[in-house]
Write a protein that binds this DNA or RNA. Sequence first.
DNA 1: TCTTCTTTTGTAAGATTTTAACATGATTTT
DNA 2: AAAATCATGTTAAAATCTTACAAAAGAAGA
Lengths: 252, 252
Amino acid sequence: MKRDRVEEIAELLDKRGKLTLEQLDDYFPHVSQMTLRRDLYQLEQEGRIIRVRGGAMSVKEVQKVSGEPYTKKTAIHTDEKIKIAQKAARLVDENTSLFVDGGTTAMYLAKELPDINVHVFTNGLAVAIELAQKKNVHLTVLGGQVLKDNLSTASPVAKSYFDNTNFELAIISASAFTPENGFSCASQVEADLLKMTRKKAKSMYMMLDSSKIGKIMPYTFARLEDIDVLITDDNFPAELKDKFTQRNIVVM
Amino acid sequence: MKRDRVEEIAELLDKRGKLTLEQLDDYFPHVSQMTLRRDLYQLEQEGRIIRVRGGAMSVKEVQKVSGEPYTKKTAIHTDEKIKIAQKAARLVDENTSLFVDGGTTAMYLAKELPDINVHVFTNGLAVAIELAQKKNVHLTVLGGQVLKDNLSTASPVAKSYFDNTNFELAIISASAFTPENGFSCASQVEADLLKMTRKKAKSMYMMLDSSKIGKIMPYTFARLEDIDVLITDDNFPAELKDKFTQRNIVVM
DNA sequence: TCTTCTTTTGTAAGATTTTAACATGATTTT
DNA sequence: AAAATCATGTTAAAATCTTACAAAAGAAGA
């Protein structure tokens, strides 16, 4: 009842960006302004909105506003990435352990992941901070030198973590893909890390928005047939899709 | 003149995340509140800040850690911590390597640290994200299980990092201090990590705001005489100060 | 330098929004 | 069913913000 209303307010704010108390009052004529205020206060505590004079605004809205969260990367193809992340989040079962990489898409995945009992390993600082908000998620960060452009860590030393850990699933993303060159990224240590991940994980899901297709980055870390599931957006070319499905790779 | 002040406000907000008008008034005592309001209005128009009730907050701040309650973050003893962090930041020389812990004060240190060529090791995720903004700072994060309440990592595995690394200086903070029980914190693994740090670092600076004095936490990781410099605020009791200076520990 | 125009700043009243405190009704627990 | 907890409504008081106007400070041109 209360929670329903609070959720509705949150959704409204995500859609509209910003609302005044008066507007909210119009949406919820059967409750008092004070109640709405209290709802907003609660959402603020949860970090989902920001109260401003006269009403409140969605955090998501602010994040989209002119600027770069970490790199200029995040600004582009945001909506696709969020959709992909939502798909991926639905594939994570409770009581599993999984690896998540440090990319932008992975950060959205971290946001979309429900607060369920899973153990996540990641080399992404932004991913870690998002996941740290969730009470039921166990979280381990791989240490190492920090790559400043994407806020991920990578270092040979990370291997020592992997020696004693296991995970069923790895959900990763790539900076570039072509059928010939496979999935590639810009950093060698990162590529090494992801290769190692491939060996450790029982299955591997790849998040790839269609803007990455046709691009080539210096270091290939996986080939087409190395993955089990490809999570992408609606602009993914049909003829490419066949190449995956022919190898029993699920494309979604 | 006006532009200078406006820029200064913007920078302040980027550092502090959020400021009330009163706090701004303290920073700019020679101009009226109305002028500051107008400055904030202008910055809002430029999309660089968001005005909230009582003051304003930096857009960058919102974009950074979106899941975190903004109100909580700027909670207790902020001003003291920032002053301590500023003192500490001045003590860091170029071309050194240092360890910084994962506490709140350490995060302010990270913000205040000039963009100079140093190598920083940290177990704090928030610290890491702040430092990643600085082009000249080399950064290594210690991996491990993430303690969600203070966004720091700690794990026995972190030892493997320490084996191959050296740093001249460790700047750390404690959750509690009494002369009898020394410096203590709430987590055992964290205490272990800090003990190890003590051995690795040539010298150790302790940041301790006076509110921590007289408190005791479960795990002691350093005694009074283990440190070289104590960085604290103006409320630090004079008689305690003597205990440090008698042992040639600099109190500042 | 003086005058004029524009910009910046200060003041204070008035409007708006928020908080705090208490009372009431609903829901859950024991 | 009583007690305890939670959600809600009402109101007055507090805090914050805006508006409007006037003074001061700069800038530009004669």
